[in-house]
Each structure stands twice: as structure tokens, then as C-alpha cells.
Write a protein that binds this DNA or RNA. Structure first.
Lengths: 218, 218
DNA sequence: CCGTTTAAAATCGTATACGATTTGTAAATT
DNA sequence: AATTTACAAATCGTATACGATTTTAAACGG
């Protein structure tokens, strides 16, 4: 595959990096001229990249106002977490794990215990599904997880969140080790649903602050 | 929601319409200048729309060559059909059907029997899942089905295809009628897998003509 | 002081210009 | 006849210009 890449992809990578670092604030309208000055690329490929992120439902385009990072809603959270959970379950169920896969997973699970990090959390989940051969399924997951970042970026320093999110990781790995994939899948799904409950709870506590309960957006 | 729409969306609608009508040929590189003249919109929003279709994996962007309708492959077919089948099953399983829903479905199923039409086929499936409340799931399905159109457009006049694709529609409806959603879901998934087999078969027969078996694209 | 109106500044969305790359064609070579 | 080479034409990707819309700040009136 050619190494040439159009600027649109570079912009997208930049924006995805910002999202990963929690630097793209919820509710923010992306200023095209400012971004153009920051990254030294004209607005044309910037708009193309943002259009793509709109297509991926990561951001919204508001006519004549621009591209905005849409506010969080409980409905969207539920839809996101449920879809991601289901897709991860499907991917896990069609995966085959080799010795070094288990090794990688254990290393990552330990890293997660040692350091609460969203990136490590996402990496753990990526390792769980990476052996699924359905690239469309995996790409769909990746895409959905970008938007999920906005829901979890508020918990980057939240020990309770990571305790909860990590709670069943060992059990998942053990089930996989014992070739009991259905159980692993079940625990995995339960884990996502547990995290969703926590997210919902926190959103209820923050109701009216940075989070809006706008069901009509979804 | 505002009625204003940016030209990007109009271009996308135009292209989606072309895809539905089978007017966008597999392997074709979309000529920006020609499309601009045809629809009377400059290339900027055209590129934005095409970038979105690239993001949705409907087409591919090849640097310095443009946006192309990627060739069909058996691997992609399998990944697409399997993902769509799974997502439809999930959507169906979280659906509640009312009397008028059943009515609509029966009407559509009859239409499908009376007239072999891809649009009617897709509409039937849309009705099957439309009551699922997970909009992200439904939007993901819609998106995947755009690409699926390329696999099925060759069968628009193929009676065998429709006989096969329609074979279990009545059984699905009957199971739903009897509130036996798990059975309906199972039949639905089997139906998609049957269609996938047929598509694979036809691709094997046409090997070397309009279809390329390029696994590395997926 | 607060709400409304007005005007200026900022920004968005689109069209267009233009350099870079690819494609197509004709001529030359084998 | 088939292949290679050279070059013109076509096309792509990006930057920039500009009219339309939104935002912001100042002025005005109650």
C-alpha cells in the first residue's frame, strides 16, 4: 500500500490525537482558521477531515456555525456502550487466542492495574478483539470508540471509574485461558454495562453542568 | 432541527441515489469535474461528500487518482454480510412490534414477492429493525448497507437471487407474530448467510471478470 | 441597570485558481 | 506487431478569495 497520504488524513490524525488527549472539549466549536494556523494546513483538507468525523458521528456539523463537539447525553451513552459491547462480544467470539496473545493481554492487564489510563484501557480492549478477522467489524468498533472517548475523558483521574472498569479484566482473561469464550464474552458485556451504569450515574450527578440530557439529539 | 443543509449533504444524497439505482459502477473513478458539471455544485463540497463516503467505507480514496468505487472481494462480502446479519439480529432482538408494524411488514413482504426489487428488499429489512431504539446501531446498519448495494446490484434482474433472499421472509414474520423473537432472529441470520453463500458462488463464477479476489484490500 | 438594537468583526461555506500528478495519445524503437 | 518513450491533456489536491451568516461589542432607550 502506497505511503502517500493526503492532508485530510493528517488532519484527521491530529484531531484523533487531540481527542485521545482529552484536548477537544465537549461543546466546543472547532475554529477552522485557528486550527489552520496551528497545524499549518489550509481549511480545505481540514473541512474534509471534519466532514469525515461528522460521518463517523464523532462531531456534528451545524450549518453556518461549523463543526461542534456535541454535548453528551444519556441516550447516546446507552446506545454507544450497548453497541460497542455487542460488537466486542461478537469479535471476541470469533477470535482465536495464541500463547503470545495471552501474554500481551496479561501484560496489558497488569499495566492497567498499575496505572489508571484511558489509553491503556482502550488498548486492553483492542487486544481482546484484535484477532477477529472481520476488519469491517473492527473498524466499526474503532470508529465508535472515538466518540466514546468523550464520555470517558472526564474519568481520566477517577480511581473509582478504573476500579470498576478493570474489575472483570482478570476474569475475562481467565475464561479465555480456559477456552471458555462464551463466559469471557458474557463477562465482557457485563463489564461494559457496569461502566455504562457508572457513566449514567455520574451524568445524573452533573446534570445541568457540562452534560445535557437532550434525547432529541439521538 | 433546522432545514438548512450544506451542499455536502446534497452531494451525498445525489451519490447515494446513484448507488441505489446501480448507476455507480464498480471500479469507476469518480470524475470531480464531470460530477460538478452534472449537479451544478463546485468540487469543494463534492470532495467533502466523497470524503464522508470514504469514511463510511463505501468508496476508497486513492491519492492523486481520486475517489474510486473499490472492487468487490469475497472477504469483504463475508465481513459485510456477517456484520450486517449480526447487527440486524441485535436490532431485531431489542425491537417491539405493534399491530401496524406487522401490517407494514406483511405489505412489504407481499410487495417483495410481487416484484423483485433491491429497494423493496432493503425496505423490508429496514422495517424489520426500525423499532430498535438504538439509533447508533441503526445508523451503522444503514451505512454498511450502502456498500452492500454494490454486491447486490448485479442481481437486480436475477430471479434466483430474489427467490433465495425472500425465502425465509414469511417464516421470519410468522415467528415475530408468535412473539418468538429468538427464532425470528435465527432465521434472519440464516437468511443473510444464505445470501452470502449465493454471492460468493456468483463471485466464483465471475472470477476474473468484474470481480477481483483481492484479500489485501481487506 | 437591563434589554434591545445596530454595526463591526469574525467565521463559515463555497467557488475558483493553480501547481503537482496521472492519464492518454502519438511517435519512435525493437 | 508489440513495446517504449515523450509530451500534451486531463485531473487531483490544496490554497485562497469572497459573499453570507453568526458572533461580539457598543450604543441607545426605558
Amino acid at each position: 500500500m502506497s505511503q502517500i497520504s493526503v492532508l485530510r488524513d493528517k488532519v484527521k490524525d491530529h484531531l484523533l490525537g487531540q481527542i485521545e488527549k482529552g484536548e477537544l472539549a465537549i461543546g466546543k466549536t472547532i475554529n477552522l482558521a485557528a486550527l489552520s494556523r496551528t497545524i499549518g494546513i489550509s481549511v480545505t483538507p481540514i473541512r474534509e477531515a471534519l466532514s469525515q468525523l461528522e460521518q463517523a458521528r464523532v462531531i456534528n456539523a451545524v450549518p453556518n456555525r461549523g463543526f461542534v463537539v456535541t454535548h453528551l447525553t444519556k441516550t447516546e451513552a446507552r446506545n454507544l456502550y450497548e453497541t460497542i459491547a455487542q460488537l466486542e462480544v461478537i469479535a471476541l467470539e470469533s477470535s482465536i487466542f495464541h500463547l503470545k496473545d495471552m501474554e500481551s493481554l496479561r501484560v496489558q492487564e497488569k499495566k492497567l492495574r498499575d496505572e489508571k489510563s484511558l489509553n491503556k484501557r482502550f488498548e486492553f480492549h483492542r487486544l481482546l478483539v484484535k484477532n477477529c478477522s472481520n476488519s469491517i467489524l473492527l473498524q466499526t468498533l474503532d470508529s465508535l470508540k472515538v466518540r466514546l472517548r468523550f464520555y470517558e475523558q472526564g474519568f481520566a483521574k477517577d480511581t473509582s471509574f478504573f476500579d470498576l472498569a478493570n474489575r472483570q479484566n482478570e476474569a475475562i482473561l481467565q475464561a479465555i485461558q480456559q477456552d471458555n469464550i462464551p463466559t469471557a464474552a458474557l463477562i465482557l458485556k457485563m463489564n461494559w454495562m457496569t461502566v455504562l451504569d457508572y457513566v449514567h450515574q455520574k451524568m445524573d450527578e452533573n446534570h445541568g453542568q457540562s452534560v445535557e440530557n437532550q434525547n432529541k439529539l439521538n
